[in-house]
Computed example of a mutant assay.
Amino acid sequence: MGHGGDVIEELTTDHREVEEIFEQIAVLPSGHKDRKRLMDHLTIELVRHSVAEEQYLYPMVRERLPQGGVLADKEIGDHSKVEQMLKKLEGCSADDPQLDQLIMDLKDAVTSHVEDEENNLFPQLRRACSPEELTKLGNKIRMAKKTAPTRPHPSAPATPPVNKLLAPGLGLVDRARDYVTGRGKS
């Protein structure tokens, strides 16, 4: 899938990619060796997406939308739950007996979050911001994903300015670990 466009197009593309990874996982039998590789890929995509949203999307939501603080806090809370699930999954092997249930729980949480963003948050944001602002925000999101962590860090701050300061460092460490271990390579 191609990335680009405004923030809503960028994040919606991410959502479709994550759904596709969940579908790829679902067709593999329990214990299949490729499930771990796909779970690593899913984790990388979800963490990068969440970090970028927390750095740039939710501050804009707070600033521009009525009840924006409440909406942003809810979405960040969703991210926190997902990140905790990802941390549990990180320690599972492909044949771990609890893996299937954890994947199902994660899929339910992610699907609920995606539906809320696409049906509630994104339409409000499109009405509240100019096309130019949304395009600028899309560019910031794409840049943030390039330096974002690739592993869950549930105790890391999720709001600016601290998250903007820590995320690139955590991302650098995560990418170094990924390089050494081969994680995230197809």
Score class of each variant (00 low, 15 high):
E54V: 06
L65T: 12
L71W: 01
Q55C: 08
Q24W: 07
G68N: 10
H15K: 08
M39V: 04
I25A: 04
V47P: 01
E19G: 00
V61H: 06
L42V: 07
M60Y: 09
A52S: 03
P66V: 12
L42G: 03
Y56A: 03
H32R: 14
D34H: 12
Q55L: 02
R16L: 10
H41L: 00
P66L: 12
R64Q: 13
G31S: 14
V70W: 02
Y58T: 10
V18W: 07
L42E: 10
E53D: 00
R35L: 04
V61A: 10
R35I: 14
M39Q: 09
E54A: 01
H49M: 05
M39F: 06
E63R: 14
L57S: 10
D40P: 08
I25R: 09
A26D: 15
E20T: 08
L71K: 07
Q67Y: 14
R35V: 14
H49W: 04
Q55K: 03
R37G: 06
V47H: 02
M60E: 12
G69H: 15
R62E: 15
L28Q: 02
L65R: 11
P29C: 15
A26W: 14
I44D: 05
E20W: 03
V51S: 05
E23L: 09
V47G: 08
D34M: 11
L28A: 07
E17H: 07
G69W: 14
A52G: 01
E54K: 11
H15F: 05
V51W: 04
E45G: 03
V18N: 08
G69Q: 15
D34N: 13
E45V: 04
A52M: 01
E45Y: 01
H32T: 13
I21C: 05
V18M: 12
T43W: 01
A52P: 09
E17V: 00
D34I: 01
V18H: 03
I44F: 10
Q24A: 05
K33M: 00
E53K: 00
M39H: 00
V70C: 06
R48P: 05
P66M: 13
L42T: 01
V51Q: 00
R16G: 08
L38Y: 08
D40N: 05
R37N: 10
H32L: 12
L46I: 01
T43K: 05
E63Q: 15
L28W: 12
K36Y: 05
R64D: 09
H41A: 07
P29Y: 13
E53I: 11
Y58F: 15
L71M: 10
Q67M: 14
S30K: 15
A52E: 06
V47F: 06
E19H: 02
I21V: 14
S50C: 02
R35H: 04
F22W: 00
E54P: 02
E17W: 06
T43R: 11
E23C: 02
G31K: 13
A26P: 11
H49G: 02
V27C: 09
H41N: 06
H32D: 15
R35P: 01
L46N: 04
R48F: 03
V70F: 10
H32F: 14
E63W: 11
K33A: 02
R48G: 09
M60P: 07
H49C: 07
G69V: 12
H49D: 10
M39L: 04
L65C: 13
V61F: 05
R62P: 01
G31I: 14
A52R: 09
V18I: 15
E23P: 04
V61E: 01
V47Q: 06
P59A: 09
P29K: 13
G68M: 02
E53F: 00
L42S: 02
